[in-house]
Simulated scan of single mutants.
Amino acid sequence: MFSSKKRLNKAYKESPIVEFDDSSKFVLFSDCHRGDNSFADDFANNRNIYFHALKHYYAEGFTYCELGDGDELWENLTFKSIFEAHKNVFLLLKAFHQNKRLHLLYGNHDMVYKDQKYVEKHLSTYFEPITGKDEELFKNLTYHEGLVLKHKKTQQRLFLTHGHQADWWNYTFWKWSRFMVRVLWKPLNVMGIADPTSPAKNYKELIKVERRIKKWIINNSNLITIVGHTHRPRFPEPGDIAFFNDGSCVHPRSITGIEIENGEISLIKWQIATTDDGTLKIVRVLLEGPQKLIDYKTD
């Protein structure tokens, strides 16, 4: 049985490389857990915030990287029900894809996307009631386990992955976890009872996962590594272990993510704020950074 070290090594070695420079702009979100808009759909509460943020990044020329668990395919049987619940989001993601500004990674909750045949069958097209026929959605889309961003000038590398490689149960036995969620935890989740096997809901498991990833980073020359999975945002200072976490899109009333722009990295949050005249608006809040990527370079 593979260790977390071997699983992370494999994901890193098999990751496609995307070159970038200081003019490149990336936004990283993960753990959207898009569902079917039922009471168990954790994404539904923040979908307007997420959609507004994504429209901003599309207009500003950002490339969108989703670090796993974008779709909740443990609680939901099919992608179709998720697509119909959040069609506006997927059509916006389609626009990113058509502009070659979309990179999607799979996590434990959407591990089925590891199968290219599954992706081609379910995500290539969708039925459009207006035209009465199938329309193109994600043509020639491939999900990866990891992604490496490589700076053209400095050769600095950033490793992007979901992070479930450091979570033995949710990586190796994800099918069993999926079964348990569908038959047991989804009904209980509606009543407010959390799944104890999830590191996002279990603090002890969260610490173990983070410790394993940090150890791997140290053994790889403090390689900048950006993950999700635990839902806990992380933004280290230069000189510390280069372990970043973009958080999630299912925080209560907010979403968190990471921006890379002008050769710098930032941790951001989008939330609903109240203005002086009593109206509500969605705003971007800078939580950490911007910090120069080169400041984390060790070799």
Rank of each mutant, 00 (worst) to 15 (best):
I294K: 10
H122M: 04
D36R: 02
K121S: 06
D167I: 06
S266P: 05
Y296R: 07
Q271L: 10
I218W: 04
G228R: 04
T154R: 09
K175F: 11
N222F: 06
I217A: 04
C249D: 10
E237Q: 13
S248M: 09
T161K: 02
V209N: 01
A11C: 15
H97D: 03
I207P: 03
T78K: 09
E237W: 05
R253N: 15
P196K: 07
T154E: 07
E261D: 11
S248Q: 10
I260L: 14
E19V: 12
D36P: 06
L105D: 00
G228W: 05
K55M: 08
D21H: 05
S81E: 14
K121E: 07
P236F: 04
L92T: 02
I217M: 03
F179L: 13
F2V: 08
E259S: 13
P16H: 08
A40R: 06
K6N: 12
G68F: 01
K292L: 13
E135H: 08
A166I: 08
S221R: 13
Q291W: 01
D295A: 09
H144W: 03
K55E: 09
A53I: 06
F2W: 13
D295P: 00
L160T: 02
L77R: 11
L223I: 12
K5D: 12
E66W: 03
G239K: 07
G228Y: 05
V18R: 12
G146H: 01
L102H: 00
E19K: 14
T131D: 10
F43Y: 15
K269I: 06
N108D: 09
P199H: 09
V209S: 01
Y113L: 05
N45L: 13
K139A: 08
L286G: 14
H162F: 07
V181R: 03
V148T: 11
D110S: 03
